[in-house]
Amino acid sequence: MRPLTEDETTVFFEKLARYIGPNIRLLLDRPDGPYCFRLHKDRVYYVSEAIMRLATNCARDNLMGLGTCFGRFNRSRKFRMHVTALPYLSAYAVYKVWVKPAAEQSFLYGNHVLKNGLARMTENTPQYQGVVVYNMNDLPLGFGATAKSTQECRTMDPTGIVVFRQADVGEYLRDEDILS
């Protein structure tokens, strides 16, 4: 377990900023004590410093995780967000997309969001912007990137893809092994 290096920090924050933009600052300055990002076995964990200090007692091999896992660096040192980061992404998301109840299940099974399943989305969302996907009860279901801007979405074909899925909560069942 160690702090992120300079390069890792830039890669990671760039990725994170796609979803929550300038709200990253809110993740670091918290009223309930200092929080930090730590790298452990290629995974980035977001954890309170008090817990992090206690976790240093565990040997590297025996420590399996702490706090919240945001994602992992792959072998080419690109960062990939995991669905485990969803609570924080949804709390600070700038752009949001809501899906209809009928399309909810399809999204949870790992499909992209189509136009006919789209209930509403934030105004002025640019193309390829990271968005968090909610259902109509405002439960965060996952996140992805928009395929079209809001303007284009208005006129598009009902079977066209609106949001490319990147992660959804269905992964807790499907890919339990990958997440931890």
Binding site: V47, S48, I51, L54, A55, C58, D61, N62, L63, M64, G65, L66, G67, T68, C69, T84, P87, V169, Y172, L179, S180
Partner: peptide, 13 residues
């Protein structure tokens, strides 16, 4: 992580 627990340290001893 599914239940949103953030105060844990998971270890394998």
């Amino acid at each position: 992580s599914r239940l949103g627990v953030t105060n844990t340290v998971v270890c394998n001893y």
